[in-house]
Design a protein around this nucleic acid. Structure first.
Lengths: 104, 104
DNA sequence: CTATTCTACAACCATATGGTTGTAGAACTA
DNA sequence: TAGTTCTACAACCATATGGTTGTAGAATAG
């Protein structure tokens, strides 16, 4: 699933389909590559369950799936916890986590 | 950088080195592959700045770097925000974010 | 009905990836 | 000094990856 996130085009597809449903061909028009290439990217994202497809007439509407993204937070959060426990062995956390408190 | 996270061995190396500094050869003993293979994984992680290496005598001590992990949160958080804005167009957020509130 | 659009999928290609073995040097150990 | 350990790096290999073009069918438009 991190593999699915490891490509710029795919990350962009996720960003766009997280905002609104888009057909595969609509997506394909946005990128400097063939329809088939974009189709493959969507397939990779679909297998990773980062997006879902819904047929509508002859189109397939692609929609971002937030659930698996949240799973990714899990791994990252785990790393954060491990790092903090290591830091606490030295009795000091040098850098505060910029995520906490502020909205950005 | 998601590419660096896209391999199970590398994710494990991150997890282990986030807890404590480990030499490349110490890491290599943990995996069913050659020293050179583990060495390559460490190099990939180093280029992505997910770990740092510190020489100590003839050893290279590998240490997880939390900063870039936090950068990954950035992308994920952005996706979360986009998804929420889409959901709000329908006036309802069906699933609450399990991250908020609870510690796990 | 005909033409167009959208999708699916196969075949193919160049390059990247993850693994291997082998060589060599630097740093410890005995 | 001699042997061992740790690292670096080159060369090589099989397979995965990201792209292409081409074919074909289903749905829509005219």
């Amino acid at each position: 699933m991190f593999h699915a996130l490891a490509d710029g085009t795919r990350r962009d597809i996720i960003v766009r389909t997280m905002q609104s449903e888009l057909s595969v061909s609509a997506l394909a028009r946005s990128y400097p590559m063939s329809f088939a290439a974009v189709q493959k990217h969507v397939t990779v994202l679909e297998r990773a369950e980062l997006v879902t497809k819904r047929p509508k007439g002859r189109e397939q509407l692609v929609s971002g799936n937030i659930q698996v993204v949240r799973d990714a937070f899990g791994l990252l959060d785990r790393l954060e916890v491990l790092w903090r426990s290591r830091m606490s062995q030295f009795g000091e956390v040098l850098a505060d986590d910029p995520r906490e408190g502020a909205n950005e």
